[in-house]
Nucleic acid binder design. Structure first.
Length: 453
RNA sequence: GUGGCUGUAGCUCAGCUGGUUAGAGUAGCGGUUUGUGGUUCCGCUGGUCGUGGGUUCGAACCCCAUCAGCCACCCCA
């Protein structure tokens, strides 16, 4: 260290520190979702945060490329740049010379790379889940960060639509376990294409879909506003009428069977039949997610009772592994929006009151003379597999109780001279502020062995 | 990337049309008191008013830039 300057500590834009309490809550969400993934046969993988830029660029469209974090080459990163590249001042071209690595933008493109590279060693269909941070140079907003976690489960190499059913079940089960009341909307990209065909719309398809995607946005003034935009785009009134008739048909599924190409109808029906009596799963023709990416089923999950966008989403994509020269394998996957799920659970007060962090008891020595004895008691509990801690801080009662509350420790035992003599301990429920009774060590171990298990 | 709002103690906020030494609550630290105790009271610490420039005799306050947060758009695998 050549020079030590005092710098005001601050974080890079769109990143956060997490307090122990927050990490515990986040882990509660992760662990809950993981347990469901595992139950359905998904295995966890990891990939590097850093990928070669060539792996990442061009996969996310032009917008996505702009949001990629690029890593400057090490050493003299200017030495191989031809002079004319400076003069042109074309930043995209210059990037090729000064950066060859980047931070991953999502977990799906790395998955495609992973599958192509490791296919000889993977079981197929490959069912994996992956939880980890990804980075986007987006402008931050509430619930939108530059570093955030994704939590994905995907099936690669199976076209069976039972995968769709399974993944929907995972959504239902995971959100049920988390206590979040959700509505899952599903649609199929092929259906959108069919509806456009029926309406006689052959041109500007993406533009039309993009507009339809904004149906629920206030700024676009709903159906009326969108209709005007569509006509401005060159559509005839009769075409837009047919289009909205399709989208608004009372019995959507019945409509599919009657009007749409039987192949597509069969496909949708084969999934929807499993959820006929499930009110949390809706088929919604206006769901238009992942325009130039998804090729079949799409999901979008919203939490009921809160003002918040989608908290989870997914879909089927047919062409991803092709980009890495692998044989084409269909993939289908779902993703949980952890940051938003956290916010929803916080807002609705859905986290368990005490999220166990392992320690059940806090032993507080009343004076230095009894610390060694206290430590022995704590150690005896630990030897029995029970999480316990000795408090070695400020002797003020206030500080002790603050500590126990901050760390959500459920029980406390205070050790004084009396306890050293008698080896009988008064157990106190720290939350309820009640004395639970007196126990010797053997009884304490018996009591908490059960609780812990 | 475009447009807008905001930034004062760790946190929540006062601070008058520009006026001298920037306040409170809470948290932190120390003490006091209280029946094995989470109470009471007292004191102390803590601020380059986001940062840098400008206008002015004088700036937390006005102007410009910049950083960060938030909101809308774009986008969101």
């Amino acid at each position: 260290m050549s020079e030590i300057r005092k710098i005001k500590p601050s974080l890079s834009k769109g990143t956060r520190d997490f307090l122990p309490r927050e990490v515990a809550k986040r882990n509660f969400i992760f662990d809950t979702i993981k347990s469901v993934f595992r139950k359905y046969g998904f295995e966890e993988i990891e990939t590097p945060a850093i990928e070669k830029l060539e792996t990442l660029t061009g996969k996310y469209g032009e917008e996505g490329d702009k949001l990629l974090f690029k890593i400057l080459n090490s050493g003299d990163y200017l030495k191989d740049v031809p002079n004319d590249k400076f003069q042109n001042q074309n930043y995209k071209e210059l990037t090729n010379y000064i950066a060859e690595k980047g931070l991953r933008y999502d977990l799906t493109v790395p998955l495609a790379r992973y599958v192509v590279m490791n296919q000889e060693n993977l079981p197929f269909p490959f069912k994996r889940f992956h939880i980890g941070p990804v980075w986007r140079a987006d402008r931050p907003q509430k619930g939108r960060y530059q570093e955030f976690y994704q939590c994905d489960a995907d099936v690669i190499g199976s076209t069976s639509l039972l995968n769709e059913v399974e993944l929907t079940m995972i959504y239902l089960e995971a959100f049920e376990k988390l206590g979040v009341n959700v509505t899952i909307r599903m649609n199929n990209r092929k259906l959108i294409d069919e509806i456009l065909n029926i309406s006689g719309i052959a041109e500007n398809k993406t533009a039309v879909i993009t507009l339809l995607d904004k149906l629920d946005k206030v700024e676009w003034k709903g159906e009326k506003g969108i209709e005007q935009q569509l006509i401005a785009l060159g559509l005839t009134q009769s075409k837009t009428n047919t289009l909205f008739d399709c989208l608004n048909s009372n019995n959507y599924l019945q409509f599919i069977e009657k009007s749409v190409n039987t192949e597509v109808a069969k496909e949708v029906k084969s999934v929807s039949q499993f959820f006929e009596k499930e009110s949390r799963v809706l088929f919604d023709p206006t769901l238009m997610r992942g325009l130039d990416y998804y090729t079949g089923t799409v999901w979008e999950v919203r939490a009921n009772g809160v003002q918040m966008g989608s908290i989870a989403a997914g879909g089927r994509y047919d062409n991803l592994t092709e980009m890495f020269g692998g044989q084409n394998m269909s993939g289908v996957g779902i993703s949980f929006g952890i940051e938003r799920i956290y916010d929803v659970m916080e807002e609705l007060n859905l986290f368990p009151t005490t999220i166990s962090q392992g320690v059940l008891l806090l032993f507080v020595p009343r004076e230095e003379a009894v610390e060694a004895f206290t430590f022995q008691q704590v150690q005896a509990l630990r030897d029995a597999g029970i999480g316990a801690e000795i408090f070695l801080g400020n002797v003020k009662k206030q500080k002790q109780f603050k500590y126990i509350e901050d760390k959500d420790i459920p029980y406390m035992v205070e050790i004084g001279e009396n306890e050293v003599k008698s080896a009988i301990f008064r157990l106190k429920n720290a939350q309820k502020r009640e004395i639970m009774g007196e126990f010797n060590m053997e009884q304490l171990i018996a009591k908490f062995s059960k609780t812990q298990a």
